[in-house]
């Protein structure tokens, strides 16, 4: 039964709301929680639920995403049979048209069921109970919900998916979601409420709040456990070095960092350098950024490869964190007001 589901990840389900963070990359490839990319969560959840064939539908061949996923080896998806597939499509006609472009994949697959998901949901979830309900209640379409709202993840049988794709011009459905939400549809629609930690990242504020919430141990342990690990691309960084003068509290720190300054209530990605007497608070610093000496960062999201010169003060607010674009060199103070 476990091998009976395909995983579809539609990268286009949330375009363009993540501002500077998605300016240079697919939203699926946005760095998250110190060492992951957003898409790691849904792929790991699929793999941990026994799904062995995962198809990613990006709007275009996206370099950051391709580079991150590679052959799918980190998720154990470099298989001879099934595994990880990329189906880029330039079609703007909606999800069903894009799936139709790659219908060979569906026709060739032996699986009976399909899980269709967005790419920016952060959760650690086993889909097996949802599939059990789908089968036991003889559903046509199952919608996974969280706190009563749609998590925008659906289970559908493969033959019905093909039918919806084929009839899309008559029904006017653009996506599986349209079919699931159509109250007049002839299908048996079910819901499955997931009560663990789940957040679909749609805005910068979602991104910031969800990240910061992980600093509460109770939330963190809902996302990370040894039985359902979240897999990601490995970078072989050494352990993080805490140098004399460093002071770190209530933070999440990835490997390969050199920390000489003060870090409080923040998330630091891999290979970040934080200089002497600098103070980082309520901030997110992405991989390979360099912060000089005597800096102050408060409510800031530094994208990767940012260089902050000595003595620079950067301030955002809890409601509106200051986002610094990937690769920027910041020599002067910036305060969002």
């Amino acid at each position: 039964m476990k091998k009976s589901m395909l995983g579809i990840i539609d990268v286009t389900m949330y375009p363009g709301e993540l501002g500077k963070l998605s300016a240079h990359r697919s939203p699926a490839a946005i760095p998250f929680a110190g060492r992951y990319r957003l898409v790691d969560f849904i792929i790991s959840n699929m793999v941990n639920s026994g799904i062995q064939s995962v198809a990613i539908f990006p709007p275009s061949p996206s370099r950051s995403l391709m580079d991150h996923l590679g052959s799918g080896k980190e998720w154990d998806l470099n298989r001879k049979r099934d595994g990880l597939f990329f189906f880029p499509s330039l079609s703007k006609d909606g999800q069903l048209s894009r799936l139709d472009e790659h219908r060979d994949y569906f026709e060739r697959s032996q699986q009976k069921y399909v899980l269709v998901s967005n790419c920016t949901t952060v959760a650690n979830m086993d889909f097996t109970p949802a599939l059990d309900r789908f089968i036991n209640q003889e559903c046509d379409l199952l919608e996974i919900t969280h706190k009563g709202k749609s998590a925008e993840m659906y289970i559908i049988s493969l033959p019905l998916l093909m039918e919806i794709i084929d009839n899309r011009y008559e029904t006017g459905y653009k996506s599986v979601k349209d079919a699931a939400e159509d109250e007049k549809s002839p299908y048996t629609r079910c819901k499955y409420e997931y009560d663990g930690l789940l957040k679909c990242i749609k805005t910068i504020n979602d991104y910031y709040q969800t990240s910061m919430n992980l600093l509460e141990k109770e939330k963190w342990s809902q996302l990370f456990n040894e039985f359902q690990p979240i897999f990601t691309k490995v970078k072989d960084e050494p352990p993080t070095k805490y140098i004399d003068g460093s002071q770190v509290t209530n933070s999440m720190i990835a490997n390969g960092c050199n920390i000489e300054g003060e870090v409080n209530h923040s998330i630091i990605f891999r290979a970040v350098y934080i200089g002497k007497e600098s103070i980082i608070q309520n901030s997110i610093v992405m991989q390979k950024s360099k912060i000089g000496n005597n800096c102050v960062l408060e409510h800031v999201i530094l994208d990767k490869d940012v260089v902050v010169g000595d003595g620079v003060v950067l301030r955002g607010t809890a409601e509106e964190p200051l986002v610094v674009k990937k690769g920027s060199v910041v020599e002067n103070a910036v305060t969002s007001s």
């Binding site: 352990p239 805490y242 509290t249």
Partner: peptide, 22 residues
């Protein structure tokens, strides 16, 4: 790679001159 999440440093933690892994 042991596939572990980043290290978590608590509120009352004190880390001086050390190497800490994920």
């Amino acid at each position: 790679n042991p596939n572990q999440p980043p290290q978590i440093i608590g509120n009352d933690a004190v880390i001086k001159h050390s190497l800490v892994n994920e």
